[in-house]
Amino acid sequence: MAERAGEKTVRSNRTDDPVAAIELLKVTRSFGSRKVLHEIDLAILRGELFGLLGPSGSGKTTLVKLIAGLDAPSGGSVLLLGERMPNRRVLGRVGYMAQSDALYSELTGKQNLEFFASLYGLSGARRTERIASVMKLVDLTEHLNKPVSAYSGGMKRRLSLAVSLLHEPELLLLDEPTVGIDPVLRQSIWTELLSLRDKGITIVLTTHVMDEADRCDRIGLIREGRLTAVDSPEGLKRASGASTIEEAFIVLGGGTRA
């Protein structure tokens, strides 16, 4: 019953929907004989803040990498911003932040940003303006000329987010953006994400923190490589008769109530 509710939402969004930012059609990924993702069908709308919720090892990162074009599905197809993947051009419209900060620690924050901006074809005055703008957004303007090796963990995370926002992507893919971050910083990152969403940017993030899932427009529950339910937080709670996402996750994920 609950699963059907999830699938219904997915189906209604499919079939060449122009407002879909991401469409996954029967996406399967296996490493050797081990199947990590089982026939994932999912459509994520433009302007949506979509959360992939699942325990570690459930296949969240694999799914994000498939969407980002870093990995190819063993079966099925991925459509990104209306383009069938793999497609190199469409990567210029996507911002990606992995679990690791992926920064050059010998370089200053500014040098890092300059490098990544150039990869996306930003140059001259436009580049300078974008760097100033994203650094202001993540509140690192005064640390622009410090080497990244002197940054704190939270500052690195924010700089990493700034890098993924440089080229004003239409779609933001964030793998565990708030993992290992203190509550105050987490709050400020969420404020930023919500304001980006309000500007019309599609955001897909993975998390295993339940209260973060509550803030998403819709959530996809992943367990052992299967998408077990997709709905708004309210919808999931209603469908499972649970009062919290955590409970809903346990019910809908196929587990038993504690």
Binding site: L70, V94, Y96, A98, A102, L103, V163
Partner: peptide, 9 residues
């Protein structure tokens, strides 16, 4: 460090 992955993204 993951920068190659970011490069390839």
């Amino acid at each position: 460090t993951g920068t190659l992955e970011r490069l390839m993204a």
